[in-house]
Design a protein around this nucleic acid. Structure first.
Lengths: 126, 126
DNA sequence: GTTATTAATGCAACTGAGTCGCAAAACTAG
DNA sequence: CTAGTTTTGCGACTCAGTTGCATTAATAAC
């Protein structure tokens, strides 16, 4: 939706998502680019990228906000119903491509589904 | 686990969970008892009650912490795998008793499952 | 009931994520 | 290049949640 300009700051943020190819917490992102831009800018860029369907957000296990690149989402059609997995050891988050069936709940109109699994990731399982 | 004393403050908090019989955000709880006790006390009581398996916690849609009474949970055996539903209109949270199947994920040891559905609740669906 | 022990509380100060307003800088269209 | 609009930096702010420490209240032993 939003008219988004390709500024240096936007490019920098997008590059991180491209290179790392994994979900990033806002806190971590701010740390990564702290010499290049202000934290307010980071928050605002993430807002815009999400509004444009380029990334999606969710809350990690401690309530902090995380973002990840959308695969096959647009501003109109957000298929971000996939669950996330966060490791209790290293805190990393993975987007899972598994599909979890949510039954309909009578008298409730479910608009979004946030699923966060926590446990040991591949690396931390020894 | 924790040696828990039946203080006035603890009784007050527990009474709220009994009477209301629905999930409470910490912020709301603090507001409810602000004439009777300090907010630090509320946080600490909730911690203890959770450690004892009397209540369970989860994060609401905006990352705030919520608590609800456990039904059939103990300190050792926490069956808090049920999903929660939060209304986008009135913000209320319900514990759902539906069972959602989570497939096993290879090379991952899933330890807990947090599912938060958001949408319109019965009352707010008009 | 009194006393000793230990847990629970109050208070004030702090931390850290996220927001806001506004002036300055950077982008885009013409 | 210029005008119009978006984006950024900065500083101050909000608000949930935490911490340390001195004080108070609950429990257990007598």
């Amino acid at each position: 939706m939003g008219i988004i300009r390709k500024t240096k700051a936007v490019t920098t943020v997008l590059q991180i998502f491209e290179e790392k190819n994994e979900a990033q917490s806002v806190v971590h992102l701010i740390e990564l680019v702290k010499d290049k831009m202000n934290k307010t800018t980071v928050y605002r860029i993430l807002d815009r990228l999400e509004a444009d369907g380029i990334i999606h957000s969710f809350n990690g296990k401690d309530g902090l906000k995380w973002y990840a690149k959308c695969k096959g989402c647009s501003a109109e059609h957000h298929t971000d119903k996939h669950p996330h997995f966060q490791c209790t050891e290293c805190d990393k988050v993975e987007c899972l491509s598994i599909d979890i069936k949510i039954p309909t709940i009578k008298n409730h109109k479910v608009e979004s589904t946030d699923i966060l699994l926590t446990g040991r990731c591949e690396v931390c399982s020894i």
